[in-house]
Design a binder for these strands. Structure first.
Lengths: 146, 146
DNA sequence: AGTGAGTTGACTAATATTGACCTGAAAAAT
DNA sequence: ATTTTTCAGGTCAATATTAGTCAACTCACT
C-alpha cells in the first residue's frame, strides 16, 4: 500500500491519537502537525474539513495566536453499525422531500431523535435552498452520533 | 499541551473564586489581581472581555477611584422567560459566522443545547447560504421547547 | 477533455501581551 | 461648598504569534 496520499496519512495519525487518548477529544497544534509532516499548515485544515466534519461526527474548536490549538471532539459512538442499519432501513433508497417530514416523525417516535432535534432539523430544511442535500448530511451525522 | 498562557491562568483563578463563593457573583480589585499575577492591569480587562462576556453568561460591574472594585455576576436564567430573553439578547444582533461556533460552544457548555444539537446545527449552518439568519431561527425555535 | 480529490502559498483574521493615555469617584485642601 | 489631588479602573493601539480562507494548481481516474 505504497500509494497513500498525505491527507490519508494525517487522517490516520489523528485517528491514532484518538485511540491513545481515553478522552473523546484530542488537542494539537496546526503548526507542529504541519512541521511534522513537512506540509503547509492549510493542509491540516483540508484534512479536518474533508474527514473530521460535523456530518462525520466531529466538532472542531480552535484558538489562534500564542498558545493556539486545534481541538477535535468526537461525538460519534463506539459502534454505530447497528444504528446505521436501523436508520437506513427507515430511510430506504431515496430521500424525497415529500416524505422528509414523515421520516423525521418516524425517527422521533422510535426515539432516534428528540422533539427538539426534530424541530431544529425542520427549521433548517425549511430555510435551505437544497433541502435534500442538507437532509442527507444531517442523517449521515445522526447515524454516527450516539 | 501542558503550556498555559496567563489569560487562561487568570480565567481559572476567577472560576475558582466562583466555586469558593456560594453567591452568583464575586468581587475583586483589578490592581491586586494584576499584582498577584505580575501583569499589567489591562490584562485583567482582556480576560474579562474575552472570557466573561454576556455571551458566556456573565455581566461585569465596576467602580473607579478609592474603594474601586470589579464585580462579575453569573447570569442565572432561573425562569424559562429569563432564559428566552437572554438567548434573544445573544442572537438579537446579527451573529457573525466567526462567532457562531463560539456561541454554540458556549451554549453547550452552559447546557442550553446538547452536543448532538450543536452538531446538527453546525451541519445545517455549513450548508446554509444565510447562516446567521438560520442560526437565529433555530435558536429562537429551540428556546421555546424545553 | 472533464471531474474531483489533494496540495500549495499568499493573504486575512483572531488571540494574547504590554504600555501609554483617559475617565471617574472619593478624599484632601481651600 | 467648591476645587484640587489621588487613586483605581477603562480604552486603545502596537506587536507577536498562530489559525483560517481562498483560489490556483497538480494529479489520477475516467
Amino acid at each position: 500500500m505504497e500509494n497513500e496520499n498525505l491527507s490519508q496519512v494525517i487522517e490516520q495519525y489523528i485517528l491514532d491519537l484518538f485511540n491513545l487518548e481515553q478522552e473523546n477529544f484530542i488537542t494539537m497544534r496546526r503548526k507542529e502537525l504541519a512541521e511534522h509532516f513537512e506540509c503547509v499548515p492549510s493542509q491540516i485544515n483540508y484534512v479536518l474539513r474533508s474527514r473530521f466534519s460535523p456530518a462525520q461526527g466531529y466538532l472542531i474548536e480552535s484558538r489562534r495566536g500564542e498558545y493556539g490549538y486545534i481541538r477535535i471532539k468526537k461525538i460519534t459512538c463506539e459502534s454505530p453499525e447497528e444504528k446505521i442499519s436501523h436508520i437506513e432501513d427507515l430511510i430506504g433508497e431515496k430521500i424525497s422531500m415529500n416524505n422528509a417530514a414523515k421520516l423525521l416523525q418516524s425517527l422521533q417516535e422510535r426515539d432516534f431523535i428528540t422533539a427538539r432535534e426534530r424541530l431544529l432539523i425542520e427549521i433548517s430544511l425549511k430555510e435551505s435552498n437544497n433541502p435534500a442535500k442538507l437532509l442527507q448530511k444531517i442523517l449521515s451525522g445522526l447515524m454516527l452520533v450516539q
